[in-house]
Design a protein around this nucleic acid. Sequence first.
RNA 1: CGGGGCGUGGCGCAGUCCGGCUAGCGCGCUUGCUUUGGGAGCAAGAGGUCGGAGGUUCGAAUCCUCUCGCCCCGACCA
Length: 479
Amino acid sequence: MAEEKLTTRAEDFSEWYNQLVLKADLADYAPVRGCMVVKPYGWALWENITSWLDKEFKATGHVNAAFPTLIPMSFFEKEKEHVEGFAPELAVVTHGGGQELEEKLVVRPTSETIIGYMYAKWIKSWRDLPILIVQWGSVLRWEMRTKLFLRTAEFYWHEGHTAHNNAAEAKEEMYRILDIYERFCLEEAAIPAIKGTKSDTEKFAGAQITTSIEAMMWDKRALQSGTSHYFGQNFAKAFEIQYLDKDNTLQFAETTSWAISSRIIGAMIMVHSDDQGLVLPPRLAPIQAVIVPIYKKDDEKVKVMEVADRIFMELKAAGIRIKMDDRDNVSSGFKFNDWEMRGVPVRIEIGPKDVEKESVALARRDRPGREGKTFVPQVGLIESVSALLVDIQAALLQRATEYRDANIHDVTSYDELKEVVKDGWAFSYWCESKECETKVKEDSKATTRNIPFDQPAEEGVCIVCGKPSKRKVYFAKSY
RNA sequence: CGGGGCGUGGCGCAGUCCGGCUAGCGCGCUUGCUUUGGGAGCAAGAGGUCGGAGGUUCGAAUCCUCUCGCCCCGACCA
């Protein structure tokens, strides 16, 4: 329950975030270092996220399956870059049933290796391809510094793993998924994420190409909100995923993997929420509208509840995710603040005056306080609430888009770049060399986020070294 | 792993430097009455042995040693 005010974003953004997650009832700290408990309200939000994605994956031919949590240690040693990337953050099981294990087992930090192993077993012929499997579950990475949702030791996600019989199709798959992720961000989460390619230093351990969607948080830091990788034949060679092609030649498969994690909840918080608490996009909100009945005496209560109950049933029947707040032990003022803290998009207040006038008060969460309140007739309320939900969804996306665009700056000199990334993103030409990328990181703590797919027609020169450059990249401090 | 902070009823804290009598306070919780259109009021209650272990002492939340854990800031990452 939300008892008191939040630290404001301007005071201390990190503290604001920590308090918000707890007070909005999304998650709690678990008794294990770096781990979180996702509370029912947070999980309901996650379920709305996953069900949309699940539907999209199935619509594009993917199927779900489950692979084990424990992976033999030796699997990690088969792909050189992969093991180097993940070795520092592995949790290892050394004992089982009171005995020391002959081969240590790793708690999966990601499942490329064990799925690669299984694919090698399953794939024999070109007829077995493509194979398009998604696993929903959790993984564990021994993180040094953790934060609820954004970076926890254990986190929840889906990981898609596909195998194909040619590179073009595998790359197409990578881009197809990235498009789904982008649509999810735009249409569902109201986050204007930018699609692009990761630099060599930022790409996934073992990938040939890593693409990402990058979003700007309220504090203007970037958050990688989804990734899609093309592995070429790296994992196929490490795990011997081979098949006989139509011409009877032995070929290595081309594989991909991709993921969006529970971190996306952190992104939604940091993009939309305000000093009153959580703000959720209506399409994903577990509760889209809450009814707060207001009354003084018992005879008022009877009349108010009669109307409130009727409206509740009507809106519920219309498919709106609605909640009746009939708590008798807290004041209506408390309820207003409480539901604002929890980010419910629309609040419907029904009091004696509304019963009389056959109206209700509608309050929209994206404009907190009294400013967001309007009075509308009870007749046609389904339509007015539905329209308001659509309007809020659009307003959140628009506001986030304007904010993002206002804080991305085209820069043409290195000094300008260093200045801009202190409080925003810089967009500039870059020669794609590791040296220039490292220099920027050392000088300003900003890293390359991604090289967006949409590029200007003309070419330019690298912001750091001045050599000719064909593509522009985003530089920003990131989470 | 380095730096900082913190472990005292469910939550937030005071008390710790300068040991001492019944370990306080706010919020929350329970019960009752009055309240309810922007975080209600009064009254009566319940609830802790002070993160853990050892030590010093007549006496330890307080001093000493060890230990466990959490949070924040930096180097790695969805």
